[in-house]
Design a protein around this nucleic acid. Structure first.
Lengths: 237, 237
DNA sequence: GGCTCATGTAAAAGCCGTTCACATGAGCTG
DNA sequence: CAGCTCATGTGAACGGCTTTTACATGAGCC
C-alpha cells in the first residue's frame, strides 16, 4: 500500500495529497502506543511530515480527529460482529458465543480503536453520526439476542431481547476493559479473558433457560449440534 | 469543617497549611466536572490559591496526584462494599445483590473517584500501594462470592468463587461504564442501570443453580427469606 | 495561460507541565 | 527568647501543545 507520494516526508511537494488519511493512520499508531490521552495532534502532524497547523484543514480540532477514529472503529466493529454472528450459523448459541469472542478480540487487536470508542472521554451523543455508528454496531448484538430469545424453551417466560443484548454487551465490555488489553489495566487472572467471558455468557444463558451444556436428550439438543463440554467452566475437580 | 486557614485564598500566609488536602479536593471537583483528561495541575493549584509550582512539593507529578485520588477512591470503595455486603446479612443472595448495587451507586455518586480508578489510563500495576488498594476492594467481592459458592445446591458442581467474583465484577463494571454515569457515555436505556444490573446478576446466579426466584418450597427458600418477585426481569406480559 | 480555492506554512498567543534558584516562616534547640 | 533549619511556597523560565491568523503554493478548471 503506497500513497501517491511516499508517506515519509521524503521529497513531497507543498501538498501532501493524502493528509487526512495519513493523519488518521498516524493517530491510530500513536493511540495504540500511548493511549488516547498521550496522543497529540502535533505528533500526528509530525509523523505525516506536515506543519502543526495543517491538520486543522481536515479536522476542526483534536477531538474531531478522535471522533473520526471512533467512528471508523465502530464501523469495523460492526463488520467484525456481523461476520462473527454469521446470521446465526451453524447454530444460534454457538454463533452468539462467537460474537462475545469477537468483541474481545477486537478490544485486544485494535486497542487504539477500542480506546477511541470507549475510553476517550468523548460524550457519545456529541456527534450524531458517531452515535449512529455505535448504534449500528450494537444492533448486531441486538439482532442476535432477538434470535436467541425466540428459542427460549417453551413454558418459561421469554426474556426481552433488548435486555439480553444489553447484558451481553455489558459483560463483554466489562471483561474487555478490566482484563482485555495487554498493557493497560493489567490484572492477574486465573484464566484468559476469553475463557472468563465464555463461561460468564454460558452461565447467563443457562440462567435464562437455554441448556448450554448440550447433553443429548435436552431440549436444546433439538436445535444445537452435540458438544462435549460438561459445563461452563470446564471439569470440576 | 474549617481548616486552620480559610481555604479560599483570602488572607493566607506564605504557607497554605493544608495544601495537599486542598489539592486533592480541588482535583476531585475538577475531575468530576471535566473528566480526568480535562483536569489540569495548574487549575488545581489556582483553585487552592497557590502558584503552579507549589503542588510539586506534595506530588511528584500530575499522575501521582491522580494515583492518590484513585487510591483514596479504592479505599472508599472498599468501605462501601464492605458495608453493602454486611457479612452476608440478612441472607447471602440479597447481600450479594446489594454489593452489585453499591458498585453502581459508587460509580454514579463518585464519578471523579470512579474515573480516576478505572478510566484515567494509569497502569494499575505502576503503583504497588494502588494495586494493593484495588485488590483489597476486590477481595470484598471475592469473599462474598466465596460464601455464595458454598451455598451451591448439592449435586451440582460447585463454581469456583474466584471466577464468580470476576464475573460479578465485570458485569458491574460493564454496566457502570457503559450506562452508569449521568453525563459521559449517555446511551438510551429501556430500564435503569440498577435494574439492568440486578436482572443480569439474578439470571447469572440462576445459571449457577441458585434459585433466586424465591418461591416457597425451593431449595433456596431454606436459607432465604421469602420474596415476591416472579423472575429476574419483572412480570412477563 | 490564467484564476481560484483547497491545502499547506510561519508566526504568534495562550496554556500546561516541570524545574530551578530563591524566599518565607513554623518549629525545634538551647 | 534568639537563632537555625528545613519543609513549603514563589517567580521565572523552558519546551511543548493547541489553536488562530495572515500568507504561500500549486492542482484543477475555464
Amino acid at each position: 500500500m503506497s500513497w501517491r507520494k511516499d508517506q515519509g516526508r521524503a521529497e513531497r511537494g507543498y501538498h501532501h495529497g493524502n493528509l487526512k488519511e495519513a493523519l488518521l493512520q498516524a493517530a491510530l499508531d500513536l493511540i495504540s502506543k500511548k493511549g488516547p490521552a498521550g496522543f497529540t495532534f502535533a505528533d500526528a502532524a509530525r509523523m505525516a511530515g506536515v506543519s502543526p497547523a495543517a491538520p486543522y484543514r481536515h479536522f476542526r480540532d483534536r477531538d474531531e480527529l478522535i471522533a473520526s477514529i471512533a467512528q471508523r472503529g465502530f464501523e469495523q466493529f460492526e463488520s467484525l460482529l456481523t461476520q462473527a454472528w454469521d446470521d446465526g450459523r451453524p447454530d444460534t448459541v454457538s454463533a452468539f458465543e462467537r460474537v462475545g469472542k469477537a468483541y474481545l478480540a477486537f478490544a485486544r487487536e485494535e486497542p487504539a480503536f477500542y480506546s477511541a470508542m470507549f475510553e476517550s472521554g468523548l460524550p457519545v451523543d456529541s456527534n450524531p453520526t458517531l452515535m449512529a455508528a455505535s448504534e449500528r454496531a450494537f444492533a448486531i448484538i441486538r439482532a442476535a439476542a432477538e434470535r436467541l430469545a425466540a428459542l427460549a424453551p417453551p413454558g418459561t417466560p421469554r426474556p426481552p431481547a433488548m435486555m439480553m443484548a444489553l447484558h451481553i454487551w455489558s459483560m463483554s465490555h466489562g471483561v474487555a476493559s478490566l482484563f482485555g488489553r495487554g498493557d493497560a489495566a493489567r490484572r492477574k487472572l486465573p484464566m484468559s479473558p476469553e475463557d472468563l467471558l465464555e463461561a460468564e455468557v454460558l452461565i447467563y444463558l443457562r440462567g435464562l433457560g437455554f441448556l448450554t451444556d448440550r447433553r443429548p436428550g435436552t431440549a436444546a439438543a433439538a436445535e444445537e449440534p452435540a458438544g462435549d463440554r460438561s459445563g461452563p467452566w470446564g471439569k470440576p475437580k
